[in-house]
Amino acid sequence: MFEILQYQFFQNALIISVLASLAAGIIGTYIVVKRMSLISGSIAHAAFGGLGISYFLGINPLAGGTVFSLLSAFSIAFFRKSAGNRLDTLLSFLWATGMAIGLVFIFLTPGYATDLFTYLFGNILLVSEVDLFMILLLDMVILSTVFLMFNSFLSVTFDEEYSETRNMPVTLVDMILFGLIALTVVATIRVVGIVLMIAILTIPAASAQLFHKTVKGIMITSSAITLFATVTGLFVSYYFDFTAGPIIVLIISFIYLLSILVSRPGVFSFFSSHFSFHVDQKVK
């Protein structure tokens, strides 16, 4: 059944799976431990604006997507503190406006229907060489930055105020981390698309978190979970002629449910322990 591996397009898809899984597993860990899933969702949907514009202009969609997702990530990092409780308004604004811009430009371009579907839900089997090269570049930036700045990221995500008292340039570190979220969004658009992206950025890391004490451990396991899901999704997609994105997300979700069952003795105690945790916090 593996004769498919000889084909260039399938090899490309496999390479993309590895690259996207590493980026999503590692950056997704930060998104989960710092509870930034809505922020990442917002950056992903804002990227759609850039995709639409570059599609209209006839340049590589990932290029425009990178510009838009970086701009939205930096504006969130910059306004996050001053926005305070209004942060969700800013996130909704970027989320919906990005989608609207993207849709307008895609509708303005003839023959939009199939491509629209590709960006929204991903199509890993339709990856060009240029895309592959771009995603490789993004991955190199993401992985090397995390390797170099691991301790700074840990410090800022764990305790921002304390990091500031140690004279760490907190806003700069935040900007860089948010920038990496933006790049991860672009690196995974081809795999699951914009609408389902929030799943691969958060659910594998949330599953891995149940089994690990440290950020490093979560990164490794969550990358492995994502890789397993993408590769399985890829094969299912090819042999059953089905879009891979939803399959990948369903595998990830299934692993999450399984992780909860394995890590806790019984679902009921899981819910009750979480409930009592929240009560504890209020008392403090």
């Binding site: 431990v33 700074s152 840990l154 410090s155 990091s163 140690r166 004279n167 760490m168 440290t214 950020v215």
Partner: peptide, 22 residues
């Protein structure tokens, strides 16, 4: 937050270096 006691204490040594190695 997934962090050990030793990692927390080490954070006081990160300081202003962006690429800190312990």
């Amino acid at each position: 937050f997934p962090i050990t006691a030793f990692e927390i204490v080490l954070l006081s040594r990160v300081g202003k270096k962006l690429f800190k190695r312990y």
